[in-house]
Amino acid sequence: MKLAHLPLRVTIGAFVLNSGLSKRTLEGEAEGMHAMAVGAVPQLSQLEPARFAKLLSYAEISLGAALLAPFVPATLAGLGLTALGAGLVQLYLKTPGMREAGSLRPTLAGTPLAKDSWLLGAGLTLVLEGLTHGRRRG
C-alpha cells in the first residue's frame, strides 16, 4: 500500500467495515433496505430481504477488510469501492424523493445517499492511480 493511499483506505475501510458489521443483525430493517434496493435494481427482488441484508453485510465486511489490508493492490480495492459507490449513486438517482424535481441536487431526505458519491470518486481514484502507477509521461 502506498503511503499516500493510507488515509483514504483506512478511513473508508473502517467506515465500510463497520457498516457491514452493523448489518449482520438487522431485525426489521432488512425489508425496508431491500425494498429501496429493489427500486434501483429490480433484479434484487429475487432475493429474500434477510438474504439480501446478509449478502450486503458480507460484501461490506469483505470490502472494508480489503481496503484495510496493505497487501491488497490499490486497483483491486478501488474496483470494489467503485462498485459500492456506483450502486449507492444508482440508489440515489432512482429512488423517488431523493432529488429535487428536474435536478441532481438532493432533497433533505436524499442528502445521506447523495453524499455517498465520494465513495465512487475515491474508488475511481484508486483504480486510476493503480492503472497509471509507474507510467512515464511522454
Rank of each mutant, 00 (worst) to 15 (best):
V89P: 02
G130H: 04
A50L: 12
A50Y: 04
A30L: 13
L8E: 02
V89W: 04
L104Y: 08
P42G: 05
G97A: 13
P106S: 05
H133M: 11
V89Y: 02
R137M: 03
G32W: 15
L47D: 06
T125K: 01
L128T: 09
T11R: 14
Y92H: 08
L91I: 11
I61T: 11
A74R: 03
L17P: 04
T82L: 06
A30V: 06
R99T: 06
M36N: 12
L131V: 07
I12M: 09
L113M: 13
G20Y: 06
W118A: 14
L56Q: 10
M98N: 15
R99E: 05
P96V: 01
P42W: 00
L79R: 02
D116P: 00
L21S: 11
L88M: 14
L6Y: 11
M1T: 07
A83D: 12
K94P: 00
L128F: 10
I12E: 04
M98F: 15
L108V: 15
L91E: 07
G87D: 11
A86F: 13
A40C: 06
S103P: 12
P106W: 10
A69H: 10
L84Y: 05
G123M: 03
A122Q: 00
A86T: 14
A66T: 01
T95N: 01
R136Y: 13
L47P: 01
T111K: 08
P106A: 08
P96L: 00
S45L: 10
A114G: 04
T107P: 01
V16R: 04
S62H: 05
S19Y: 13
H5D: 06
L76A: 10
L119R: 09
L3A: 05
L126Y: 09
L81V: 05
I12A: 07
L67C: 08
P49T: 13
L120I: 05
K23F: 13
V16G: 07
L126K: 10
L119M: 02
G85M: 04
L26Q: 04
H133T: 12
A35L: 08
L3P: 07
G138T: 15
L79N: 03
M1Y: 12
L47W: 06
L55W: 05
H133A: 15
L91T: 12
L81N: 03
L63G: 05
L124G: 11
P7N: 00
M36E: 15
Y92D: 02
Q90R: 15
G97R: 04
G78Q: 00
T132C: 11
V127Q: 04
L81P: 01
R136V: 11
A101L: 07
H5Y: 07
V72C: 00
L108G: 14
E31Q: 15
L26C: 00
L8F: 07
T125I: 08
P73T: 02
A30W: 09
L91F: 03
L63D: 02
R99N: 02
P73N: 06
G130A: 09
L126C: 11
L68I: 02
L21M: 11
G134K: 02
L21V: 13
G28S: 09
S22L: 15
P70V: 08
E100S: 07
T82V: 08
G102L: 03
V127S: 07
L21W: 04
K23R: 09
T125E: 10
L104W: 08
P106C: 02
M36V: 14
T107F: 07
L124S: 05
K94G: 00
K115R: 03
T95K: 05
I61Y: 12
L81F: 03
T132S: 14
G85Y: 10
G28K: 08
L113A: 12
E48C: 14
